[in-house]
Each structure stands twice: as structure tokens, then as C-alpha cells.
Design a protein around this nucleic acid. Structure first.
Length: 558
RNA sequence: UGGGAGGUCGUCUAAUGGUAAGACUGCAGACUCUGGAUCUGCGUAUCGGGGUUCGAGUCCCUGCCUCCCAGCCA
């Protein structure tokens, strides 16, 4: 996980530095990454993972992977499995510390009994509706529950019976006895346990009462000896409660630190919304390559290294900001540029005939596998009279600034020869261009010192070309921030109808050996990753990210 | 409106009382058998108003704006 660059300075590191200087926690740093298994991980989690695991590593400490599985109604084993896979894929090392809040249910229960005995918690018979009505508002204090002053004995008895399953869901709760007039609503006698006769993915039906987040989290941190419990901004006003429980119990007291969650332009990063897209069938699944999930990005071709570098580059602060998607793409390209094998593929084929090239002849030309990596070697490509080129690389009447192929113009075929266009064959009925006819200059074979031409285009020999299905992805949403919908508009209103386009192209023969997950650069087009659908009989590629395209930019300006 | 947290280039961050810096984006150019990569250059910022100080993005006062909180979700 130790990647490149010195991680940027941030306030959490500074805080740890000062803790260590003061001897707090004896210089130990132990963090944790605590997802709830109610969905798949997304890039925002990658930021948290890098922060937690990165800080631990930097200070010679440890980081636990802990599932916050306190709500059986929303959690599933499928999610646990996907999360473990994603965390590992990102390269985070939890060293066997795969933990669950549910491991501590008994301890949590015992501690709750302790608080009851201290008169700090009580069983409340109010319905959730009544609790809501007596909570007060932002500006008005709440009212005490009529059950607030039950005797310790009665509370103990009732709580034991809650656990024993005597009462139906929602009929009672265990509440902390704090202050119904607190300006912090979290302190208005918060619920610690609710009754839920539900099957838990790990504890089955052993329990029918489940701890709330606030009651579970800090105590789990304490049990695990977490020193720095890093969470997102929305938990800031939970911190007094986090501290309160720990103080009442008199146990090891980790400190909660809040930072800003990641927001990205042109996508949504909330499990609720992502779930909605999956359930409505808008996306193929959690791993749809358009999803900002780790599994979606993996399928799309993003590399763990690229994602890590991106996450590292993110600032850690308390500002509510939105990071530009372009920044993510930059780090993905940067990594893929160094590692991806180059290959030639034509997405929208146009037939090119070299009229002075002998019919039936095939020769082989040598191509560099990765100009950024001499060790990647070379491969040979068949070259012949009939080739496929990109439709975009030919114009019958070239626009200003176009220096690809057009009648009378010369271009180089990458790793091949310089060719000159002399004719265009059209469908007499539709006027559609069917073939482009050129002559090649035998003196200009690649590797020799020859004259220069303005443009080099990619190609594939028609006879040997492999059919490929290529999925071209665009931004998922049409607006930078789909969350900011004016009056009633649902975020799905801004889904980009063109976020997926499937084309059928032609690829060089070497791609026959592509395995799912293999990443390539299709020269001049972008980075592509073999999809999981790829097998011996079918080649399916996902476009990971386009290459920077100066020409496209010039065209756009006009 | 009560409480909590924030406001530095277009975006994200740095500057810890001492020359406002970097990255992404954008623009311009060089180079190029990828209009890629690489290289060079350019541009724009301390929310407003007071104050303290030799000196304020940083400290104080005040105003404005943004985000979070009224789940038996996390």
C-alpha cells in the first residue's frame, strides 16, 4: 500500500503527531475501516480506506476491517463478501483482523446492563411515533418519557425479557438517560437497543434486540483498542454521545475525528442512490462499469494503483467540496499509461484498399508494446492490401486543421507505410462511403528514416482482424451535481441517456488471448479492459477512459 | 430559528503571525511514427466590514453565506 509520494499534509496527521508528542495512547496508532455491509463500496470508501490504512502504516500501527453489522434488516452476506474483495483488491492489509460489531453483542449487552444499574439507561415503552413527538424540535426541548423513572429492578427485568424475545418489534427500547433538553438532539435520551426479530447474517436468530450505531460504535472501537476513530462530518454532533457512553463505562477512550466525505462531479456517492439505480435496473448491477463503486471501476478497467494515487491526492479537510471527475481520470490515465500494453483496434471500421499492394500478400510489421516501458517488448502485426481504419480518420472534405486522411493527402499507417488517398468508393444509392482507395509508398516502411507526414493513424489488417464488441461509457449524469435538484426533481432526471454505447469493431489478432480484466491501450483511442463476458468465443471490451484528445477539443470549440 | 461544522485560484488542497504554494482543469507553444505521453510558458484566489500587530489567510469583534442534526438507519 505504500505508494509514491509523501502523503499530503492534513489535519488528522497533524493531530496524531501532536498526540504522539504528548504521549497520548503511548504513541500507538490503531485505526479501523468500519463499513456497514448494506451495499457495495464506492470511491468515497477508497478515500477512507487509504486514510485509515495509510495513517496506520505511516505510524507503524494497525488498521482493522470491521463490519458495522448492527442492523440485520439491511445487511447481507453478499455485501460482506464484496467488501472484503474490494478492500483486498485495493491493497489494504488488515492482517487477519476481519472483525464484526456482532462479535461484541454480548459485551455490549453486559455493558447496557451496567448502565441500567447505574441508573443511566431505562426501558421505554413509547412507540417510535411517540418518541418522535416527545423529542422536541431544533428549537424546543423534548419531554421526558413517562417511563424514564422506572426502578433499576424493573428496567433490568424488562431488558432481560426484551432480550428473551417476550416483546414484539417496536414495542420497547432501551434508552440512555441523558438530557431531553439538550440542544444536541443526539443527547435527548437516545435509543440504545431496539427489538428486531430478524435473522442476522452472522448471529442468526440468537438475538432479537440490536444495538444502535451510537451505542455500538464507540464501544467496539474501545474493545479493539482503536486510538483514532476516523469518520465523516455528519457524525460531528454524535461525538458528545460517543464520548458520553465511554465515560459512563470508564473504559478505554478512543477519539473520534471527522473529515469530509468525497464528492465527485457527474456521479452520486450515496449507497441509497446507488442501490436505487441497481434496483430500478438502470444499471446492470453494482459492478456496472458506469457505477462509482469499486467493483464497477474494477470492471471498467481502473487499476488499484490508479485509484490509490487518486485517493492519496485528495485533501483531507472539513470542507464540503466536490472533486472534479477529471482529476480521477487523470490518475487513472497516469497509471495506465505506464502499464497498459498498446494494441491497435478500430471501433468504427472503414475499408481501406491499397491499390498498388499485391493482392494476397501478407507481411509482418513490428510494433512496440509500450513506449513507456522498454521491457514490454514488441510484437508483429500482419499487414496487407485491405485494411480497416477508423471512420473518423478519413474525411472527403477535411475541416480546417484536419490532418488525417483525405483525397490527395498523405498519412502514415502506424508501424506500416506512408499512404496517399486517391479515390473514394461510395454506395451509389445512399452516397455512403464504402471504401477509401490509397497507394502506399514501399520506401517508407516503419523503422526506416523516411520523410515525415503530419499524421499517423491506426489500422487493422482486414483478413486477420478479430471482431470485438466495445462498450463506450460516458458520464453517468449530465450535470455536475445530480444531488442538487431544483424543486422536486429526482436525481435520476439527470441520468445521461448516452452513458453507454455499444459498437462492433475490429482488433488486431494479438487480442485473441485477452482474458477478463486485462487492460490495454487501443492506440489513439483510450484505455480498454476486457470485460468479464470475454471468453474464447467472444471479445468484449469496456472503455476505461479516453486518451486526452486535442483534436476533439479543437472541434468542440467550433 | 437551537446546536454543531465550515468559507483560500474554475476545482481540490498547502501556507501552523513573516514573499499566498501545489495538483487537476483551462489557454498558448515545443516535440512526436499515438492530435497520446513528455517538456515549456500563461492565467485566476484569502467571503464582507472593523480591530490588534512592524507585519494578518492565520489572532479578536461583527456581519454574510454554505453544510449537518428532529430514524427504533449508519
Amino acid at each position: 500500500m505504500n505508494d509514491l509520494d509523501l502523503p499530503a499534509s492534513n489535519f488528522i496527521r497533524d493531530l496524531i503527531l501532536s498526540d504522539n508528542a504528548n504521549g497520548k495512547y503511548n504513541g500507538h496508532v490503531h485505526t479501523r475501516f468500519p463499513p456497514e455491509p448494506n451495499g457495495y463500496l464506492h470511491v468515497g470508501h477508497a478515500k477512507s480506506i487509504m486514510l485509515n490504512f495509510g495513517l496506520a502504516e505511516e505510524f507503524g500501527g494497525k488498521c482493522n476491517l470491521r463490519f458495522d453489522d448492527t442492523n440485520p434488516a439491511k445487511e447481507e452476506t453478499e455485501y460482506v463478501e464484496s467488501i472484503v474483495e474490494d478492500v483486498k483488491w485495493l491493497g489494504a492489509d488488515f492482517g487477519g483482523r476481519l472483525l464484526y460489531a456482532s462479535n461484541y453483542f454480548q459485551q455490549l449487552y453486559d455493558w447496557a446492563v451496567e448502565l441500567i444499574k447505574k441508573g443511566k439507561a431505562f426501558v421505554c415503552d413509547l412507540t417510535s411515533e411517540q418518541v418522535r413527538q416527545t423529542r422536541g424540535t431544533l428549537t424546543e426541548p423534548g419531554q421526558n418519557s413517562p417511563y424514564r423513572d422506572r426502578s433499576v429492578e424493573e428496567n433490568l427485568d424488562l431488558f432481560a425479557r426484551m432480550k428473551a424475545g417476550e416483546f414484539p418489534d417496536g414495542s420497547r427500547t432501551l434508552r440512555a438517560k441523558i438530557d431531553m433538553a439538550s440542544p444536541n438532539l443526539n443527547l435527548r435520551d437516545p435509543v440504545m437497543y431496539r427489538i428486531l426479530h430478524a435473522d442476522h447474517h452472522r448471529t442468526g436468530n440468537h438475538w432479537c434486540i440490536y444495538p444502535m450505531y451510537d451505542w455500538a460504535h464507540g464501544q467496539c472501537d474501545s474493545i479493539e483498542g482503536i486510538t483514532h476513530s476516523i469518520c465523516t462530518l455528519e457524525f460531528e454532533d454524535h461525538r458528545p454521545l460517543y464520548d458520553w457512553f465511554l465515560e459512563q463505562l470508564g473504559v478505554f477512550h478512543p477519539q473520534q475525528i471527522e473529515f469530509d466525505r468525497l464528492n465527485l462531479t457527474y456521479t452520486v456517492l450515496s449507497k441509497r442512490k446507488l442501490l436505487q439505480l441497481v434496483e430500478q435496473g438502470v444499471m446492470e448491477g453494482w459492478d456496472d462499469p458506469r457505477m462509482p463503486t469499486i467493483s464497477g471501476m474494477r470492471r471498467r478497467g481502473y487499476s488499484p494503483q490508479g485509484l490509490r494515487h487518486f485517493a492519496r491526492s485528495l485533501g483531507v479537510s472539513k470542507t464540503n467540496g466536490i472533486t472534479e471527475f477529471e482529476k480521477l481520470e487523470y490518475y487513472i490515465r497516469e497509471d495506465l499509461n505506464r502499464t497498459a500494453l498498446r494494441v491497435m483496434a478500430v471501433l468504427r471500421p472503414l475499408k481501406l484498399v491499397l491499390t498498388n499492394y499485391p493482392e494476397g500478400q501478407v507481411e509482418f510489421v513490428e510494433a512496440v508494446n509500450n513506449p513507456e516501458d522498454a521491457g514490454a517488448g514488441t510484437r508483429s502485426l500482419p499487414f496487407s492490401r485491405e485494411l480497416w481504419i477508423e471512420q473518423d480518420d478519413f474525411r472527403e472534405t477535411p475541416p480546417k486543421g484536419y490532418y488525417r486522411l483525405y483525397p490527395g493527402n498523405e498519412v502514415r499507417l502506424r508501424y506500416g507505410y506512408i499512404i496517399k488517398c486517391h479515390d473514394v468508393v461510395k454506395d451509389p444509392a445512399t452516397g455512403e462511403i464504402k471504401e477509401v482507395h490509397c497507394t502506399y509508398d514501399p520506401q517508407t516502411r516503419s523503422g526506416q528514416q523516411t520523410r515525415k507526414v503530419k499524421s499517423t493513424i491506426h489500422w487493422v489488417s482486414a483478413a486477420e482482424a478479430l471482431p470485438v464488441e466495445v462498450r463506450l461509457y460516458e458520464k453517468l449524469f449530465t450535470v455536475e451535481n445530480p444531488n442538487e435538484s431544483p424543486e422536486g426533481a429526482d436525481f435520476t432526471t439527470y441520468l445521461n441517456p448516452k452513458s453507454l454505447e455499444i459498437v462492433h469493431g475490429k482488433a488486431e489478432p494479438s487480442l485473441a488471448k485477452a482474458q477478463p480484466g486485462d487492460r490495454y491501450q487501443f492506440e489513439r483511442l483510450g484505455y480498454f479492459c476486457a470485460d468479464k463476458l470475454t471468453d474464447a468465443g467472444r471479445l468484449v471490451f469496456n472503455r476505461t477512459v479516453e486518451l486526452r484528445d486535442t483534436w476533439a477539443k479543437i472541434q468542440k470549440q467550433r
